[in-house]
């Protein structure tokens, strides 16, 4: 699970080493990547909203 999260995070930054990616694509479960991707995107949006709310105080 943690490795999926790590992979998605590095994908968001556009940084991932080749070996790791090969592993993900050969053994990973696509559904897990999609779910984790959506969750991380939501978390990202919430963090950004949070920063904006704090900054606007």
């Amino acid at each position: 699970m943690w490795s999926v999260v790590k992979s998605v995070l590095s994908a968001l930054l556009g940084v991932q080493n080749d070996l790791k990616r090969q592993q993900d694509f050969s053994s990973g479960n696509p559904a897990a990547f999609i779910v984790v991707g959506i969750v991380i995107t939501l978390v990202f949006v919430l963090i950004l909203v949070g920063i904006a709310v704090i900054a606007s105080r």
Binding site: L13, G14, V15, Q16, N17, D18
Partner: peptide, 10 residues
Amino acid sequence: EHTSVEILWT
């Protein structure tokens, strides 16, 4: 591909 270069330019 060079992970550290990529991390740097991000």
